[in-house]
Design a binder for these strands. Structure first.
Lengths: 164, 164
DNA sequence: AATGAAATTTTCACATT
DNA sequence: AATGTGAAAATTTCATT
């Protein structure tokens, strides 16, 4: 997927504002970022089309949905075949409680984040996962407190010469 | 921060749809979840007011912003005073590259997720952090591949008797 | 839960610098 | 090439039934 698109300061202001509040109307947004209604609208279309904006979503409150428990699961495996990897990816995709999965450097092969109502629910997800795919070594840690969790990415000006 | 609000199947359908696509108009949404235009609008207001919907945001593509590196940082500390904790929270709040922070069970005290352009940028964040707050033991692992990362939370019907 | 109308917002064609 | 004008179309919002 293509490299960095050319983003000027005004683009970064738009992105910053929409990361914080996606409900802003063009009028409100243009005012906040010091652009005309129209210039703002066109930049927005461009950022959308370029895929810099991946999407607009509603963020829900986990507690209000009964999702009290966040678990991080570290996974080691001895299997590294294509087939195994496909199965693993499919299993993770099929389990909505698994909200993140990264292949990592270091002694842990994979790190996943799971959102569930309870320890019991966590165990159920764990069992469904190991029923689908062979894992060598699984260890989990639970979040006692969520101190920061944001979808806002840090925004910086591009080092010059890194445009598309 | 009240407990769980009463959410019926239609509410869950609304939430599910908006987690996937926050741009849906009321018309499109009501069609998708099989409600009348108006009933859908009122439920939406209720879900917003109840805080089940925390907000609407634009999600950006890290790669398109030059944020190629995701790091997980495990932190141990010997300090557990109120004052230290406040400083730590403030330091993390002030660094936009730190996108998540959890206090954990187990042998690691804190786990944080950091998004940066490069190892150099990671190191710069690390240095800014330790300049602000005393940390005993810091170890980091880097993501080689993001296999799943979604803001969509799993939605289940509430066990009965868990309403507000 | 449905109707309908006012207010707001998005969208775009066209003119301008 | 980027910006401003203006107006049609779509959408949200809410009072009333």
């Amino acid at each position: 997927m293509a490299g960095r698109i050319s983003l000027d300061a005004a683009d970064l202001r738009i992105l910053g504002a929409l990361q914080k509040d996606g409900t802003l109307s063009i009028a409100a947004l243009s005012e906040r970022v010091n652009l005309s209604h129209n210039s703002c609208w066109r930049r927005l279309k461009r950022l959308d089309a370029a895929g810099v904006i991946k999407g607009r979503v509603a963020l829900l409150d986990p507690a209000k949905l009964g999702l009290q428990l966040t678990a991080y699961v570290s996974i080691r495996t001895r299997e590294h075949s294509e087939a195994w990897l496909r199965e693993f990816a499919a299993a993770v995709e099929s389990l909505p409680e698994i909200v993140e999965l990264y292949r990592m450097t270091g002694d842990v092969d994979y790190l996943m984040k799971i959102r569930v109502p309870s320890i019991e629910a966590y165990d159920a997800v764990y069992k469904r996962l190991i029923a689908k795919v062979r894992l060598t070594d699984v260890s989990s840690a639970f979040a006692m407190e969520e101190m920061k969790n944001t979808t806002e990415l840090p925004l910086f000006a591009a080092p010059s010469g890194e445009d598309e």
